[in-house]
Write a protein that binds this DNA or RNA. Structure first.
Lengths: 151, 151
DNA sequence: CATGAAAATATGCGATTTCATATTAATCAC
DNA sequence: GTGATTAATATGAAATCGCATATTTTCATG
């Protein structure tokens, strides 16, 4: 048997080196990993996502929030209605524009999201453990740059 | 008016600095961007994704392919059945195990996917234009690392 | 201040997706 | 070889999602 010089030169395939695939793959695998914990605590994924975003930026109106949460508007409308009737969020009329609704988290919503935020950060820390410091900072910087290319 | 020393110190929010959000956001925004072109050419997104993966790794069986495509197994079963009857893929029985089906792209499938592969690479190039060389290589390396942390 | 355009949210329905489970086939323990 | 386990794929019903569009309100312009 001859010495192997490298881990074999499997002809580089398309997806392995395709940025959009790599992003989708990393995103999905890592999110799934954390989502298992969310589900285990009895919370739906979309509820977690919306709570995290509303806690983060309270008082947004539906349209802006849908961009932040990355959910399509009509879908978010339905999710929020449900969360309002579940007592996790409330909608407040915005003075001066009767179309707009500002969205906030209730005390009950806070209670639910608080431990998840901690758990999420802990998970992130574990994920980032595999990277060097410079990799960490560059990764986050580059991801931000990719989202708004005009910066 | 005083000189602004920095773009204001908006208190860093959770999601802005949360890796899983950044990944999801970058993935979704960039993919949507390319998907507009795919749709414009009359191809469904899932058809593009499956074709790209099967071209990349022909002869995979359904279960492995579903991991590569990042689609759940029963969903992929249905998609592939449709694509087979549309003449884009074919399934071949695997000798020695009558449960397995190896999946390949037909000539018609090739014709459809070929221009999309070129277009995808062109889009990727444009996306990566905003990054330095070292950012590019690190980004891809780190994304791979994130997907299989045990490497 | 009337009219047309644009913005914010809501709604209904068709299409897609998922979940649980069925079915068929291979493998393992004995 | 028989029975129990595991693997690969398929299927059907229920849940979710997204598209197109409706509705209400504001804005712009003459």
């Amino acid at each position: 048997m001859t010495l192997m010089t490298a881990p074999a030169d499997k002809p580089t395939t398309f997806v392995d080196d395709y940025l959009l695939y790599q992003l989708a793959s990393a995103s999905q695998h890592l999110s799934d990993e954390f989502h298992r914990k969310v589900k285990a605590s009895g919370i739906k994924i979309h509820v977690w996502r919306v709570l995290a975003c509303v806690v983060d930026q309270p008082g947004l109106m539906l349209t802006s929030l849908s961009k932040l949460v990355l959910y399509e508007q009509s879908r978010l409308t339905k999710i929020i209605d449900q969360m309002v009737s579940d007592g996790l969020l409330n909608k407040q009329a915005v003075a001066g524009d009767r179309r707009k609704m500002a969205i906030f988290v209730t005390a009950k919503g806070q209670e639910i999201v608080a431990p998840l935020l901690i758990s999420a950060k802990a998970h992130e820390t574990k994920v980032l453990e595999n990277l060097t410091d410079s990799e960490k900072t560059m990764l986050k910087r580059v991801l931000k740059k990719l989202c708004n290319p005009r910066t």
